[in-house]
Simulated assay, not measured.
Amino acid sequence: MGDSNSDPDAVRRDPVNAADPMVDAHAQPDEAAAEAALRPHTLAEFRGQPRVAEQLGLVLAAARNRAHVPDHVLLSGPPGLGKTTLAGIIANELGVPLRISSGPAIQHAGDLAAILSGLAEGEVFFLDEIHRMSRAAEEMLYLAMEDFRVDVIVGKGPGATAIPLQIPRFTMVGATTRAGLLPGPLRDRFGFTAQLDFYAPEALTEIVVTSARRLGVGLDPDAAAEIAGRSRGTPRIANRLLRRVRDYAAVKADGHITRELARAALKLYEVDERGLDRLDRRVLESLCTRFGGGPVGLSTLAISVGEEAETVEEVAEPFLVREGFLMRTPRGRAATPAGWAHLGLTPPSASPSPAAGAPSLFDGED
C-alpha cells in the first residue's frame, strides 16, 4: 500500500479506526474542520436525497453480499449538495480507506499512475471535478476502471516501451458539477450514476437542527426553518449560515438562537428571506433600475455591478434564474415580474419585451 503522505494531492483516511470528528462545543475549529465535522458518515444519517441514498444503498449491499468490489460511481450535481460527503459514506459503509484527489491536480498520466498503483484492494478512490482531468490521464483511467491495469511508458521516442502494470481492484467515485463535459467513454465506465438535486426546505431544516446539535448550539425549531429557508436548497450554505448565526448569537446574546436573532444575524450578513446575497441583489437591482429590466448584455451588466462577467454568470445568475427572478434571452438578461416584485418595484409599462425582435444597444456582447 502506498504512503499517501508522499502525494500532496491524495489523502488516505481509515473510516473504521478514525475517531468520530464531533465538534467540541468549547473548541474553536476552523471552517474546514467545522465543515468536515458536520458531514454525515453513514447512509442512514444522510438526509435530503432519499432516492439516491436508496439506490446507492442497494449497490453497496449487493457488493457486500457477493464479497465483490462495488461498481464505479459517478456523482453529479451543483456544488454543495453532498458529493464529497457521499464518497466518504461509501468508504465508511464498505469499511475501507478513502483516497481523495481532484481533476485539476492530475495533469499527467504519471500522476494518475502513481496514485492508482498505491491503492489497496477494495479501496475507494474519489476524484473530485473529474471533468477537469487532462486528456492523457483520462485515457489511462479508461483502462484502469475497466481492466484494473495501467500501462507505464518507459523510455522516449522510437525505443519507448509500454509495461502493463496490474493494480488492485478498487471503486472509483467521480464527482462533477458539469456532467455534460465528461466524454461518453468515461461516463459509460461508471456502473451507477447519481444526480443530486437541490434539497427541500424540510430536509434542510432537519440538517440545520442536526448540525446545531453537533456544534453544541441551542436552536429553536422556527430559527432552524428560517436558516434553512435562506440556504438556496444547499446543505453547505445552510451549515455556513448556521455558523455565522452561531457567532452572532454568541456575541450579541446568550448563545441560544431564536428566530428573531437568526433574522437579525442574516440581515447583518445581507442574506434576504429568499436567500439572495449582496451580489445577487446588486445584479437584480442594476438590471431593474439602470436598464429598465433589460434585456441587457452580460458584459454590460457585470460592469454595472463592478464584477467580472464570469462571476455574474457563474455565481449570481444560476440562483436568480432558478428562483425565476431573471431570464437569459437571445438578446441578453431580463428581469421577470417576480424579480421586480422581490425588490418591491413596479415594472415600467413600456418595459421592453425579451422576445422583441428589434435590435438593442447591448446586443451582440455575449
Rank of each mutant, 00 (worst) to 15 (best):
V124M: 02
V11E: 13
P29H: 07
A203H: 12
T289I: 03
D363H: 05
V217N: 07
S76P: 03
A53F: 10
D272H: 08
S353V: 01
D9L: 05
V23H: 13
V11Q: 08
V152G: 11
F46R: 08
R99I: 11
G57V: 13
G344A: 15
M1Y: 12
G174R: 09
T311A: 06
K156M: 08
L38A: 03
L204N: 05
M133S: 00
V73P: 00
S304D: 11
E260I: 02
V315N: 13
R278H: 14
G297A: 02
T205Y: 00
A338T: 05
P201D: 02
I130H: 03
R47E: 04
E365C: 15
G184W: 12
F362W: 15
E260F: 11
N5M: 08
S211C: 10
T42L: 02
P295T: 10
A225V: 01
T176S: 10
P8Q: 11
R244E: 02
G180F: 06
R132K: 07
R99F: 14
A10G: 02
E121K: 03
L204Y: 00
T346M: 03
D272Y: 13
A37E: 10
M327V: 05
G191C: 06
A120G: 09
Q107G: 02
A203G: 11
A175R: 03
L301Y: 03
R322L: 09
D254Q: 13
A212D: 11
T300E: 12
V152T: 05
Q107F: 08
T176H: 01
A33H: 09
L301S: 04
A358H: 12
G180D: 15
H131S: 07
S102V: 02
G122W: 04
L143I: 07
Q28R: 14
A114C: 13
A223T: 01
P359Y: 12
V52H: 12
L81C: 01
N239F: 02
G77M: 11
M140Y: 10
A10E: 07
E93Y: 04
G294Q: 03
T258P: 00
L279Y: 14
G88W: 03
A120T: 08
A18R: 04
R169C: 01
R240N: 12
L127A: 12
T346N: 02
L241G: 01
P78L: 05
E35W: 03
R169Q: 10
L196F: 01
R149V: 14
A53R: 15
L279I: 14
T176N: 04
G155M: 11
P185E: 04
I207Y: 01
P158W: 10
A18L: 07
I130D: 13
E307Q: 15
N239G: 06
V305A: 08
G275M: 08
E138N: 06
P50C: 14
H68V: 05
R214E: 15
A10W: 00
M172R: 04
